[in-house]
Design a binder for these strands. Structure first.
Lengths: 202, 202
DNA sequence: CCGAAGTTCGACCTGAGAGTCAAGACTTGT
DNA sequence: ACAAGTCTTGACTCTCAGGTCGAACTTCGG
């Protein structure tokens, strides 16, 4: 029975992964369960054995992708724990953008749910994002406290970083593999300036 | 007969404006012509008198909103022509974000079309965006040439600015009017650092 | 005031896709 | 091997929204 449970979990995981992919490519409305089923080599009917309906599947996709990504980011921050301050942020940004581009290219469209969606889901997404941003927020506030960074507004800085990173896959998708890596480096370097000390303008 | 033409143009303009609004709120797929018609106080049928179908209406909405916005931006750049260099970019960014937030809150969703859309439309959108970005590109390259700015990569800088500005309405929509204005100022100040001279990191 | 052109209406058709379900196929423990 | 539980299927219904169309209504030039 544990064996059974395992298999079921595995199955659910696969379904959710594929669903996240399709929802991200097509958007919620344009995604048909038929297509999700097709990519899984099953029929639409059996999806209903695991999920009550389209909404629940989409919710699960958002939830899973959101927490997985955040956990990876937190692990990454731990890995980079002993890199010195100015480089640390840069490395964190770079790796994060790379992950976004290579592994979660569908995230932007998946999380950009219409205003008409249930409030509960929208709140959940905001919560996921807050936790996600926390890694960078900590990094910046610590840097500011130590005098290594200087920002006009932590929130606005975070917002700019987040917006840029979430749109990176869109920008990079048309580039060849090499150019893509350079673009990722460039973006990280550029975003790093957001935290750096300002010089010149007001 | 000119009178007739005028009236027709006016009508088309209204339809497109409302359509852009709805498409931006709901996304392409979730938008029903019924709803567009309802907001215009007409019935679905009469929309077909002006547009061949949903696609054509969406295309017109994208086209109109894209060119209108770009023209406003270009006019704005002309207005700010004699502001000195470091402030000029900042003012341009600020005004542009303000316009985005207050007048084109639907732009992000409207322009973020799925991969499955016709290539012609996707190409057109990319072209609109290029022209749109040109204002900022000129500003930055001129500043770099004059030694006022220093950037790692013009493209990446532009991308970061564009991404942040296009997501600004989403971020600001939950804020009260005053907080919104402050957020816009903060974002402009933050983005301005992207062009400024770097200090410290590699 | 009339006829023609321009415009709107609303009933209708159609296809796509969400969701249901009874029957059968496969797995697993004994 | 067999029975109980687990999963998959494919045919079915139903709703919703895109699109069509002829009739009716409005506007305009003469």
């Amino acid at each position: 029975m544990n064996r059974v449970q395992r298999k079921r979990d595995e199955r659910v995981r696969r379904i959710v992964a594929v669903a996240a992919e399709v929802f991200g490519e097509r958007g919620y409305e344009a995604t048909s369960l038929e297509e999700v089923a097709e990519r899984l080599d099953v029929t639409k009917g059996s999806l209903y054995y695991y999920f009550a309906g389209k909404d629940e599947l989409a919710t699960a996709a958002i939830e899973t992708l959101g927490t997985d990504w955040t956990e990876r980011l937190e692990a990454l921050a731990r890995t980079l724990a002993d890199v010195p301050r100015p480089e640390r942020l840069r490395a964190l940004l770079r790796e994060h953008i790379a992950i976004a581009v290579h592994e979660y290219p569908a995230a932007l469209r998946l999380f950009l749910v219409p205003d008409s969606w249930p409030t509960a889901l929208r709140d959940r997404i905001r919560e996921l994002r807050r936790r996600h941003d926390l890694v960078f927020r900590r990094e910046i506030t610590a840097g500011v406290a130590a005098g290594d960074f200087a920002v006009v507004s932590v929130d606005a800085t975070l917002q700019a970083m987040h917006a840029t990173m979430s749109q990176a896959p869109l920008w990079c998708s048309h580039l060849a593999a090499e150019a893509q890596e350079r673009a990722i480096d460039d973006l990280a370097a550029v975003l790093c300036k957001l935290a750096g000390e300002q010089k010149g303008s007001l």
